[in-house]
Measured scan of single mutants.
Amino acid sequence: MSDQEAKPSTEDLGDKKEGEYIKLKVIGQDSSEIHFKVKMTTHLKKLKESYCQRQGVPMNSLRFLFEGQRIADNHTPKELGMEEEDVIEVYQEQTGGHSTV
């Protein structure tokens, strides 16, 4: 019986991991920090939209990076291997420009 009891508790931990929340720091170019608590399985588009709304800027005017890689709207913290207190960097999107060649 103890084996049966242990097995469901392991499964519960697996389920808990799926719905687990982590805190992420979003740091802007001006070094301002906003902290977000997100589920591991939530699409990061929600975090990006919330950040842009707080900053009063359109979402397409900023780019969000985690460990140097651009974050897509459909990425989740779990897919990117994010952990508690990880940092997302935000930069002004640069458009235009010309070749110097």
Rank of each mutant, 00 (worst) to 15 (best):
Y91W: 10
F64S: 03
S31D: 00
E89H: 04
P8S: 11
M40F: 05
D12V: 12
K39F: 00
M59E: 11
L13Q: 10
S32Y: 05
Y51V: 06
Q94A: 13
L13M: 08
N74P: 05
F64E: 00
K17C: 08
M82R: 04
L13V: 12
L65M: 14
L47A: 01
V38L: 12
P8W: 07
Q55T: 09
G14I: 09
Q92A: 10
G81V: 06
L80H: 03
C52D: 02
K25G: 02
Q94E: 07
S32M: 08
E89I: 13
Q92C: 13
R63K: 06
L44I: 04
I22L: 07
T76A: 02
V57A: 13
S61W: 07
K45P: 02
E5W: 10
L24H: 02
N74C: 14
N74A: 10
G81F: 15
K23A: 09
H43W: 05
G97F: 07
K39V: 00
E79I: 06
L62P: 02
G56W: 03
K16N: 11
E67G: 10
V26R: 05
G56M: 11
Q29K: 15
Y91N: 05
G19A: 11
E49R: 14
E18I: 10
P58F: 01
D30K: 05
K23I: 12
V57E: 03
Q55K: 15
E5C: 00
T41W: 03
L62R: 15
I34G: 02
D15W: 05
R54N: 01
L47C: 01
C52E: 03
V90K: 03
K48G: 01
E85P: 00
Q4M: 09
E85I: 05
E79S: 06
R54K: 06
Q69G: 08
D12H: 11
V90Y: 03
K39R: 11
I27L: 15
E67Q: 07
D15G: 12
P8T: 06
R63G: 04
N74K: 13
Q29V: 02
K17V: 15
E33V: 09
R70Q: 15
I88Q: 04
E85L: 14
I88K: 02
Q55S: 12
G81N: 02
D12K: 10
H35F: 11
L44V: 01
P8I: 06
S9C: 11
G97R: 04
T76P: 04
E89D: 09
K78R: 15
E11Q: 08
K25P: 04
K17L: 09
D12N: 13
A72I: 15
E89L: 12
E85G: 15
D30T: 08
D12L: 10
Q69Y: 07
S31N: 11
S50D: 07
E93Y: 11
I71V: 14
E67S: 05
I88W: 01
T41A: 10
D30A: 12
D86V: 04
V26N: 00
P58R: 08
T76K: 01
N60S: 11
L80R: 02
Y51Q: 03
F36P: 04
L44N: 01
N60F: 07
E5S: 12
K46G: 02
E18C: 06
G28P: 04
Q29I: 15
K48E: 01
G19W: 08
L80N: 00
V90T: 13
H35W: 13
N74Q: 08
K7A: 08
R70E: 15
K78P: 05
P8A: 11
Q29W: 14
K17S: 11
K16I: 11
I71Q: 02
E89W: 15
G28A: 15
P77R: 06
Q4H: 11
V38I: 15
T76Y: 01
D3E: 09
K46N: 09
K48C: 00
G81P: 02
V26E: 03
G96F: 04
E93T: 15
L62C: 14
Q53D: 14
E11T: 07
K7T: 11
E89T: 13
K23S: 11
H35T: 15
T42L: 09
